[in-house]
Design a protein around this nucleic acid. Sequence first.
DNA 1: TGGCGAATGTTACTGTATAACATCGCGACG
DNA 2: CGTCGCGATGTTATACAGTAACATTCGCCA
Lengths: 144, 144
Amino acid sequence: MNRTDYLQAAEAHCERRGCKLTALRRQVLELVLRHQGVVKAYQVLADLQKERGVAAPPTVYRALDFLVEQGLLHRVDALNGFVVCDHFECQHESMILVCETCGKVQEVDVMAALAGLHDVADAADFTLSHQNLTLTGLCKACRI
Amino acid sequence: MNRTDYLQAAEAHCERRGCKLTALRRQVLELVLRHQGVVKAYQVLADLQKERGVAAPPTVYRALDFLVEQGLLHRVDALNGFVVCDHFECQHESMILVCETCGKVQEVDVMAALAGLHDVADAADFTLSHQNLTLTGLCKACRI
DNA sequence: TGGCGAATGTTACTGTATAACATCGCGACG
DNA sequence: CGTCGCGATGTTATACAGTAACATTCGCCA
Ligand SMILES: [Zn+2]
Ligand SMILES: [Zn+2]
Ligand SMILES: [Zn+2]
Ligand SMILES: [Zn+2]
């Protein structure tokens, strides 16, 4: 899916969910899309300032929070960052693989594998919510 | 295992690994042990200041980093915090369950369940390192 | 047109983490 | 005994991350 299609789909997605991808939110989403991999809030803020002169942290945090809420981005706790989700339409829990060497990030589907974790949690009398797991390791290129 | 035994075991553990649980590191570990559940670095810093007057962030961060390195603590990224590991002797990957309501934390053993995640990562040409997963949900008490 | 609620702007602050450099303490070695 | 080296700790300053609180604007609807 190219960037334009993505943004259009994202807008429709928000619409369906009863909220609006405003100009600002869209702009922030575009800025995140321009990077590959994880982006930090203050990087987005800097980019935003380049485009519109002034901008303060709450502006970008509010937009990022919104986008995460809508499932367009995932937050990556281990890196204090955000990644674009390219299958926000389907209901899923995210599993994000972060290469320790090059920092590259990929999201994989993990529904099945999570079953095992749910079992373990059940055994501990704990009800899991939706997860956003970040796993670290080595990507193909860096494994050599 | 009571606190004294724990500290003694921790010291031996470090010794075996070729490094030393110095007085400062031991003091920080004790401070973490005094809390149940997740502790934040700046909480430890405040406690440390109460005990020895002055202390700056690097002092406590260095000690915490050391303890994590030795496997005595796990870092909980999602909360910017740390928890004591009470089975640091055995080789394990941690899975930490955090209740979204009361904030209570428990670590469970998860070796088996991780097999599924390793399979998924393999399929994505990714070699997992040791993991420190944080899963959120509701604990027994808060599920009602 | 006026009023309401959501979104955004603005200021100021709290919390989290690290860089860089100074100093200390202690064992190895001549 | 010095003194060299090195790991641990102290100190200062700053970078990075996130939020509270309040002001203002904007778009929609009565
Ligand atoms: Zn996703
Ligand atoms: Zn890599
Ligand atoms: Zn553990
Ligand atoms: Zn609970």
